[in-house]
Design a protein around this nucleic acid. Structure first.
Lengths: 168, 168
DNA sequence: TTCCAATATCGTAATCATTCCTAAAGACGA
DNA sequence: TCGTCTTTAGGAATGATTACGATATTGGAA
């Protein structure tokens, strides 16, 4: 545990950042969470150790870590930004109806490398696969809505309550 | 031209949606644009034909089209959501520094299919690859900032001006 | 063709995540 | 120890997105 803190201190310094307790604890918490937390969730959880932590600091730190390539954003979300600090390679399933993001592992996808033509665009660091479709819940709702026939005359998707649907 | 409108009318009705002129024109404009426009850009362009178009309608329509799987969001963006209506298969390069999104084609990636374990999550529709790294501009800026040494003591990325950096 | 209920649109106001501000205090690293 | 970077507090501002009430339009039935 104590060693872990040292690990993240080193990581910060390696990126030319001061290893403040706030940054270290935010990093530790991110590494521990395998969900896709938003800034407020991170703040809430880190506050258990650093009660005075300000939300502003969390936003600043997350932005910094993203720019350094330590974490990444996920979900193409509209309402709130979510982050992914899962360092193991994994891929994403995104529900185009409710916006939920689920991780899944895939050895075959892990082996993919960027093709040559991306050199013209920039320097590639990571390659990940994004699968889109309907999550189980939305697919069930879809079947419910149109059991066998084609169209129930009304009631399109009503895409409300997009928040808090993202799970790990 | 006139036929095109009919095509999109049909497409709307095929999804159980009323074929209003607003929707039809928004669809046509999206199909024509191979960039990754945000809602406001779409609105601005469609207003050349439908001057009274409200921004609210654009937002609603984009959300509806996304839920129907006709278009998708891109970029994991924080500030504004951008959409991708490019129906040909292609993949994305995302700069983790400035957030720019670039398309690139790749036959090998086009052949990918969702692995079996996603069945537990939901029903897959599309598979796309996301490459992350530094775009040419940001990579150049990085070299400039730290020509040979390691760290210029200060000045982290300063991720400002994230907007309008997304190109097609 | 005309009518009607369901739906979509408009214009504007409200919402809400995110960022910025200042000053003061604290902490890191050399 | 010192200088500089960071954080805090506590608002306040920003700006994209969405909700709201009134009005207009659509698609199918009479």
């Amino acid at each position: 545990m104590a060693e872990r803190a040292a690990v993240y201190s080193e990581r910060c310094r390696g990126h030319g950042l001061r290893a403040t307790p706030q940054r270290v604890e935010i990093c530790r918490e991110l590494a521990r969470m395998h969900e896709h937390p938003d800034a407020e969730t991170v703040c809430r959880r880190v506050r258990r150790r650093l009660p005075g932590l300000s939300l502003d600091t969390v936003y600043r730190t997350l932005k910094t870590l993203e720019a350094e390539g330590v974490i990444r954003r996920v979900g193409s979300g509209g309402d709130r930004v979510r982050f992914d600090a899962n360092l193991e390679r994994h891929h994403h399933f995104i529900c185009s109806r409710c916006g939920a993001v689920h991780d899944f592992p895939c050895k075959a996808f892990d082996r993919l490398t960027a093709p040559r033509n991306v050199k013209a665009i920039g320097v590639a660091h990571t390659v990940n696969v994004e699968v889109r479709g309907l999550c189980a819940a939305c697919a069930a709702a879809e079947r419910q809505r149109a059991p066998a026939s084609r169209r129930p005359r009304s009631a399109a998707g009503k895409t409300r309550n997009r928040r808090d649907l993202t799970t790990g």
